[in-house]
C-alpha cells in the first residue's frame, strides 16, 4: 500500500517535470515570434526632418488600413447602447457582486473559466500552426486541472519566472487573420461590443469550442457565460472608463484600440 502511493507520487512528479519542460521549450518559440512582431512596429516613422519644418515620408495612417468603418451609423448607435448598458446595468451588478465576494475567490473563478476555454485555445493554436504553443496550452491545462483545483489556481503559469507566456488569448478571428483573411468592415454588436466581419465569423465558430455552450438546458449555458463575464468585469472595473474618459471621441478611441490590438494579435 505504502509503496504504491510512492510509485503514484513519483509518476506524478515525472509527468509534471515533463510538461514543465515542454512548456519552457515552447515558450522560447513564442517569445521569438512576439519579438519579431514588435520590431516591425518599434519605430514610429519620422514625420519631419531635423529642422522640424519639412515633412518627410508618408503621412501617418489611421486604422482604415486595418479595417474601414463602413457603417458608422450602425456602429455608433450600438456603441452608445452598449455604453448605457454598461453603466446602468452591467457595471452596478458587477460592483454589487464585487462587494459581496472578495477579490481572491473572484480571481479563482476567473482562472477556472480561463482554464475551461482550453479547447478553443488548443484548436486555434493548431489551426495557426503553432504546435509548440498548443503543447504549452495542453501542459498548462493538465497541470492546472489536476494540481490546481480544477483550474482555480494558475500555478502552471507561474512556473517560469523570467519567461513570458505564450499569449493566453487565441480565437478563430485571429486564426482567420493568420490565414490572410481580411477584416472586412469594423462592426459593433449589441452586448458583444467591437468586432469586424472576420471576427464575427470567428466568434460564431468559437462558440462551438466553448465547453459552456454544451451545458443543458440552454439557460444554464447562458447563465454560465453571463456569470463568467460578470465575474471578469468585477475584476476589471475602471478600465473601460479610463479609455473612454481619456478620449475626446470615445467611439473612435475604442474602435482604434480594438483594431490595433487585434492586428497585433494576428502578427504574433
Amino acid at each position: 500500500m505504502g509503496r504504491s502511493i510512492v510509485r503514484v507520487g513519483l509518476l506524478a512528479i515525472g509527468a509534471f517535470v515533463l510538461f514543465c519542460g515542454v512548456a519552457l521549450a515552447a515558450d522560447d518559440q513564442a517569445v521569438l515570434g512576439k519579438e519579431l512582431a514588435q520590431i516591425d512596429n518599434a519605430y514610429a516613422p519620422e514625420l519631419w526632418d531635423a529642422s522640424g519644418k519639412t515633412p518627410t515620408g508618408e503621412p501617418s495612417v489611421g486604422t482604415e488600413s486595418i479595417a474601414p468603418d463602413s457603417v458608422p451609423g450602425w456602429n455608433r448607435f450600438w456603441f452608445q447602447f452598449n455604453d448605457k448598458f454598461y453603466y446602468y446595468l452591467f457595471k452596478p451588478v458587477a460592483q454589487g457582486y464585487g462587494y459581496v465576494l472578495p477579490e481572491k475567490p473572484r480571481t479563482w473563478v476567473d482562472n477556472f473559466f480561463h482554464n475551461l476555454l482550453f479547447p478553443m485555445r488548443f484548436v486555434n493554436c493548431l489551426l495557426q500552426g503553432q504546435f509548440r504553443a498548443a503543447g504549452v496550452e495542453t501542459s498548462r491545462f493538465i497541470g492546472n486541472t489536476a494540481f490546481g483545483f480544477g483550474g482555480m489556481s494558475r500555478f502552471a503559469y507561474d512556473l517560469k519566472p523570467t519567461q513570458p507566456t505564450a499569449s493566453g488569448e487565441r480565437d478563430l478571428g485571429q486564426t482567420f487573420g493568420v490565414w490572410g483573411i481580411d477584416n472586412g468592415t469594423y462592426l459593433v454588436w449589441p452586448f458583444v461590443g467591437p468586432s469586424t466581419v472576420r471576427d464575427t465569423f470567428g466568434y460564431a465558430g468559437d462558440y462551438f469550442m466553448r465547453p459552456t455552450t454544451y451545458l443543458n438546458p440552454w439557460y444554464w449555458s447562458m447563465g454560465a457565460t453571463a456569470y463568467e463575464k460578470l465575474n471578469n468585469l468585477s475584476l476589471r472595473i475602471g478600465e473601460y472608463e479610463t479609455l473612454t474618459e481619456s478620449a475626446i471621441d470615445p467611439y473612435t478611441a475604442v474602435r482604434d484600440a480594438y483594431l490595433r490590438y487585434r492586428a497585433q494579435k494576428v502578427k504574433e
Partner: peptide, 10 residues
C-alpha cells in the same frame, strides 16, 4: 467589451 481588450487598457 471583450475581455481581451481589458488587458490592453490595464
Amino acid at each position: 467589451m471583450p475581455s481581451a481588450m481589458k488587458r490592453v487598457i490595464l
